[in-house]
C-alpha cells in the first residue's frame, strides 16, 4: 500500500478509537433468569463500532472458579442504562442491560479515560491498513458441497486459472474433523500462497493471521489441537513488511474501531516466538507496560504478552 493508505487508516483510528476501560469490583449478573454475585472481578468495557452499545469481558478474577462464575456467555451488545463511562469513577455503580438480562458493576477502581498514545495508534493503524488492501478473504456464503468445491478448485489450479481458483477458495472452507485436523490450515496456506503469488498482500496477511490464530471451523476444539498447529509466523519476514510493528500492532486494541482478524493471546505469543523476533518485541512491550502515557488496558495486555513470552 501507498503512504496515503497508511495515513488514512491512522486518521480514521485517531477520530474513532476510544480506549478500552478496565473496571475492578463486584459484578451482579442477572442473565437467563439466574442471579450471580462475584467479588473482585476485573472486566474490560469496550465501546462497539458505530453503535451505542458496549462489549463486556471478564478479564480475570480472584480464582479460576470465580472467573468461571463471573464470565459472560454473551459479550457484545450491552446498553449502558445507569452511569457514564466518560465520568466513571470508583464507588459509582454502572448498570448494563440487554433484553431481559442485566449486569450491575460496583467498581472499586476504574482505569482513567486518558488519551491515546500516538505510537500505539500508529502500530494499530499499520496492521489495519495492510489488512484492508484486499477485501475479506471469505464470502458469507460457503460451498454447499465441500467435495465438489474441492474438486473444482483442484481442476482450476491444474489448468493454471488463478482467478478461478481464487473464486473457489473464497467459498471453500473445509470443516476440521477434530481439533488435531490440520487440513483447514493447509487449505488456508495454499490460498495464502496463491494470493502471495498474485501480489495480493492484504489477502495473504488476512489468511496468515487466521493460520497464526488457528481460527478455523472444526467439529471439535481443544487446547491440544491449538498447541499442535504451527503459526508459520516466520512467513511474515518474506513479505518485506516491518514484522516487529506488525506483531506489536496486533497486541494493541481499541474500542470504537474494527480490523480484520484479531488473535487470541496464547497464539499471538507463540507467533511472536516463531517469527524469530521475540527479543526486540519483548523490549518494546516492556517499555509500553511501563509507559504512563499508554492506556491501561493496553499496558495490561503488554504485561500479559511479555509474561507469557
Amino acid at each position: 500500500p501507498g503512504m496515503a493508505q497508511f495515513q488514512s487508516a491512522y486518521e480514521q483510528a485517531d477520530r474513532q478509537a476510544k480506549p478500552i476501560r478496565l473496571v475492578q469490583g463486584r459484578i451482579v449478573k442477572e442473565v437467563d433468569g439466574g442471579h450471580v454475585e462475584v467479588d473482585d472481578v476485573v472486566l474490560s468495557v469496550e465501546r462497539e463500532v458505530e453503535a451505542e452499545t458496549y462489549a463486556l469481558r471478564v478479564e480475570f478474577a480472584e480464582t479460576d472458579d470465580a472467573y468461571s462464575e463471573a464470565r459472560l456467555g454473551s459479550r457484545s451488545g450491552w446498553m449502558l442504562v445507569t452511569g457514564s463511562m466518560e465520568r466513571a469513577e470508583a464507588g459509582v455503580p454502572f448498570v448494563f442491560e440487554k433484553g431481559a438480562s442485566r449486569i450491575r458493576i460496583e467498581p472499586a477502581y476504574v482505569s482513567p479515560a486518558g488519551r491515546l498514545l500516538m505510537e500505539a495508534l500508529d502500530a494499530w493503524a499499520y496492521v489495519a491498513a495492510l489488512l484492508a488492501t484486499d477485501p475479506p478473504v471469505y464470502d458469507d456464503e460457503r460451498a454447499t458441497d465441500e467435495e465438489e468445491a474441492g474438486a473444482k478448485l483442484a481442476a482450476a489450479r491444474a489448468a493454471g486459472d488463478k482467478e478461478k481458483a481464487l473464486s473457489y477458495y473464497r467459498i471453500w472452507r473445509p470443516m476440521g474433523r477434530c481439533s488435531m485436523d490440520s487440513r483447514p490450515a493447509q487449505v488456508a496456506r495454499e490460498y495464502a500462497d496463491l494470493c502471495y503469488d498474485m501480489g495480493k498482500l492484504g489477502c495473504f496477511l488476512q489468511l496468515q493471521l487466521r493460520i497464526m490464530g488457528d481460527q478455523f471451523d472444526r467439529v471439535a476444539y481443544s487446547s491440544y489441537g491449538e498447541a499442535a498447529h504451527a503459526t508459520e509466523a516466520e512467513r511474515l519476514t518474506e513479505t518485506g513488511l516491518d514484522v516487529d510493528t506488525f506483531l506489536l500492532g496486533l497486541v494493541i486494541r481499541f474500542g470504537g474501531v474494527s480490523r480484520e482478524g484479531e488473535l487470541g493471546g496464547y497464539r499471538l505469543v507463540r507467533s511472536i516466538k516463531e517469527s524469530g523476533r521475540a527479543a526486540p518485541i519483548a523490549a518494546r512491550l516492556a517499555a509500553w507496560a511501563e509507559d504512563a502515557t499508554l492506556d491501561e488496558y493496553n499496558r495490561l495486555t503488554a504485561t500479559q504478552i511479555l509474561a507469557l513470552l
Binding site: 475492578q24 476485573v42 480475570f60 477502581y109 511501563e290 491501561e296 504485561t303
Partner: peptide, 18 residues
C-alpha cells in the same frame, strides 16, 4: 513491577502465584 498500573500489577501477582 512498581512501574506498572494497578490492574497489571494485580494480574502479574496472580500469574506468578499460579
Amino acid at each position: 513491577e512498581e512501574e506498572l498500573p494497578p490492574i497489571a500489577r494485580l494480574w502479574l501477582a496472580r500469574h506468578h502465584a499460579k
